[in-house]
């Protein structure tokens, strides 16, 4: 088991979107993990995040996003 490797791969996908100006607009969690929707205003992307560490990681990004008052928080 190399769960860290799975995390790194998912983190890379998340970071790629964030670095390209995307932010998280929706999170749906279910038995399959988390489906995280990103938007940059024009385009939307969705990532299926399965590793526990990556689910923690996007939560951190969400917190940061809220602190930076980036949409979509009300």
């Amino acid at each position: 088991m190399h769960e860290h490797k799975e995390f790194l791969e998912e983190k890379e996908q998340i970071d790629r979107l964030i670095n390209n100006g995307f932010f998280i607009t929706d999170v749906t969690e279910n038995l399959e993990g988390a489906f995280v929707q990103f938007s940059n205003g024009a385009d939307t992307e969705q990532l299926h995040i399965q590793s526990a560490s990556a689910r923690k990681y996007f939560s951190f990004l969400l917190k940061k996003q809220k602190e930076d008052t980036i949409s979509p928080f009300t």
Binding site: S59, K63, K66, T74
Partner: peptide, 20 residues
């Protein structure tokens, strides 16, 4: 980076604030 303190309750509270 990304390991800043966050509780489950804080996380769920954040998720509940998503507009959807």
């Amino acid at each position: 980076t990304g390991d800043e303190p966050m509780t489950w309750n804080e996380r769920q509270s954040l998720l509940s604030l998503m507009p959807a």
